[in-house]
Design a protein around this nucleic acid. Structure first.
Length: 579
DNA sequence: GCCGTTTTCGGCCCGACTGTTTTCAGTCG
């Protein structure tokens, strides 16, 4: 594949090799170029086709040298410079640096001292106590590496939903275009929008299954075919994702979709209900004692025959949804694509890629009615705004808002919660902003009590409207902070603070279970893109999916409201009314 | 390697944290 994402990964790998070599500045240059390429809305192949390397070099952060490498990759699928680096340093750099706390320099040191090339060798050396003997390493580093390895291994071969979903959707439409395919549907954990995905499942209805199978196993990105029959084929793609395809008869489509979507626990529960009615339920349909078909053509028909309304896939975890459905009390989940606002966006005033106006236009294009500009504040020394700059930006946002029709811009900030729970921007300035979000970006390793008190102190501040990505976890990479979410939720309820569902694919923070906890406690939510570039507004639906998995309705999510009503329910607005 | 109300060279987001040290290197955001 030669997508922007692949190219970004490649540029990052080059940067990491240079980092390992101790080269100055170039690593940052490659990383910046990677970020810029990944942030592009159009495939970089487009400027390449239109104007070659010259036009590619107009992307900010991409100069002649990197543009040439991009062109080489687009035309040949490889970059000689990178291949040479890989030969020179025969290490699985991306794999090893995926360990939290291990960077390129560490990989280099491990290779020089012990010849470690990959995760397996590293684990062996760490377990044998060999790491602590290397200069600059001690017992603690060895333990950290082992812990990092354990965390990576917890869900081997799993991918973040946000990474898999676009690939799966593209595959779905390609299969759908085949003339032999009557119907194709994405099933499995992807349909349930689980936050990590082990494999992709497709259900196909076709009267010519062989042709479909032939096409499926001979797609260009297929790396391995595990098996291929007339109703079922399993493959692995080059990117490591396993994909299963099943061809089913038309009359079994609903039953098959239900069966292969799961979850397993949900299916078991459904089969128990079927049994209690004297029926049998399997992937071919719902049958009575004589083996006659009761239902199976559609999922709706299947659920109806079991005395249930249709249950949305995101709820199918057997966490009580079947009982609710039985009583006719299923929540009406927040629909996709209906958010009116986005309360966390960054611009090039801090670490975003685009200007305030560019972000505003992109948001408008995606049908949003308002966004808050929430750049980082000062504690993030690399990018953050101090009070003077934040104040200047506020003026600028208001100016742009006045002259921009069709979208409302709110002045905000992503304010840092300091170690003691105070904020890095004073209350007076905060009180002038429209929306204030706070979050933890430093001292991530406080103990549970201290972290909980820190966050609770911050959200008790009357100027604080929203707690952004409340647990700080990074999916498949970093555990959440040690924090008592029940207590945070209790204080959020008490103070009227909103909790965020951050839609960044490897955050999804709050997660589904926390969403449910918050809703049960009566706490209101917002779903934000945390966009750092114009293209990122597209991920909002991942946040909606997470909220749906936590049974959120539109009433629970405040940015389904139009802007004036949204602003009225912020706690500072309540404070104004009270005074 | 990129970039320029500093324009063809000389800068380049920088502070906190951790574990290793004894003054620093690596990682992270």
């Amino acid at each position: 594949m030669r997508t922007n994402r692949d190219l970004g990964k490649l540029l990052r790998e080059i940067g990491a090799f240079l980092e390992m070599e101790g080269v100055a500045f170039k690593p940052r240059a490659y990383e910046k170029a990677a970020i810029a390429i990944e942030a592009m809305e159009e495939p970089v192949a487009t400027p390449h086709q239109k104007g070659g390397a010259k036009l590619v070099a107009t992307v900010p952060g991409v100069g002649k040298s990197i543009a040439d490498k991009i062109v080489e990759f687009l035309e040949t699928g490889r970059v000689d410079y990178l291949e040479a680096k890989r030969r020179e340093h025969p290490v699985d750099l991306l794999g090893l640096t995926a360990i939290e706390g291990v960077g390129a320099k560490t990989v280099g040191a491990l290779y020089d001292a012990l010849g470690i090339q990959n995760l397996a060798a590293l684990e062996e050396a760490a377990k044998a106590g060999k790491i602590r003997g290397i200069k600059g390493f001690g017992e603690k580093s060895e333990q950290e590496i082992l812990q990092g390895l354990e965390f990576l291994k917890k869900e081997p071969g799993r991918f973040p939903l946000g990474e898999v979903l676009p690939i799966a959707k593209a595959l779905e439409s390609r299969l759908g275009e085949l003339s032999q395919v009557d119907k194709v549907t994405l099933a499995g954990s992807i349909l349930r929008r689980k936050e990590t995905i082990g494999d992709a499942d497709f259900i196909v209805v076709s009267s010519h299954p062989d042709a479909v199978m032939d096409f499926f196993v001979s797609m260009p990105e297929v790396a391995h075919v595990y098996g291929k029959g007339s109703t079922k084929a399993n493959i692995r793609l080059e990117n490591g994702l396993d994909v299963d395809l099943r061809v089913v008869p038309k009359q079994s489509y609903g039953a098959a979709l239900n069966y292969f979507t799961g979850s397993k626990a949900h299916n078991v529960h459904l089969r128990r209900i079927a049994q209690s009615k004297g029926y049998k339920l399997n992937e071919y349909g719902l049958f009575d004692k004589n083996g006659d078909v009761i239902a199976g053509r559609t999922e709706k028909e299947l659920y109806a025959a079991l005395g249930l309304p249709f249950i949305p896939p995101e709820m199918r975890e057997d966490r009580g949804e079947i009982e609710l459905a039985y009583d006719g009390k299923l929540p009406k989940l927040i629909p996709y694509g209906k958010l009116k606002g986005d309360l966390q966006t960054q611009t090039n005033w801090s670490d975003g890629q685009h200007s305030i106006e560019e972000m505003a236009r992109a948001a408008m294009k995606r049908g949003l009615e308002y966004i808050a500009i929430t750049d980082h504040t000062i504690e993030l020394a690399m990018t953050g705004l101090d009070e003077r700059r934040l104040s200047e930006q506020m003026t600028e946002i208001r100016k742009i808002d006045r002259r921009t029709k069709g979208i409302r811009l709110l002045a905000g900030a992503e304010v840092n919660i300091l170690k003691d729970g105070s904020l890095d921007i004073g209350d007076e300035l905060l009180s002038k902003l429209d929306v204030v979000g706070v979050t933890v970006h430093s001292n991530l390793h406080l103990d549970r009590k201290e972290m909980t008190e820190r966050i609770c102190r911050a959200i008790r501040n009357p100027q604080v409207d929203i707690l952004f990505h409340p647990t700080g976890r990074v999916i498949l990479k970093r555990e959440p902070y040690q924090v008592d979410m029940e207590e945070v939720i209790r204080v959020a309820k008490e103070t009227g603070t909103l909790l965020e569902v951050d839609a960044i694919p490897d955050r999804l923070d709050l997660n589904d279970e926390h969403v449910k906890m918050a809703i049960d406690a009566g706490v209101k939510l917002v779903i934000d893109s945390d966009a750092h570039a114009t293209a990122h507004f597209d991920i909002l639906d991942l946040g909606v999916a997470t909220a749906r998995r936590g049974w959120a309705t539109s009433k629970d999510v405040m940015n389904t409201l139009p802007v004036e009503r949204f602003l009225k329910q912020l706690k500072r607005s309540h404070a104004h009314r009270a005074s």
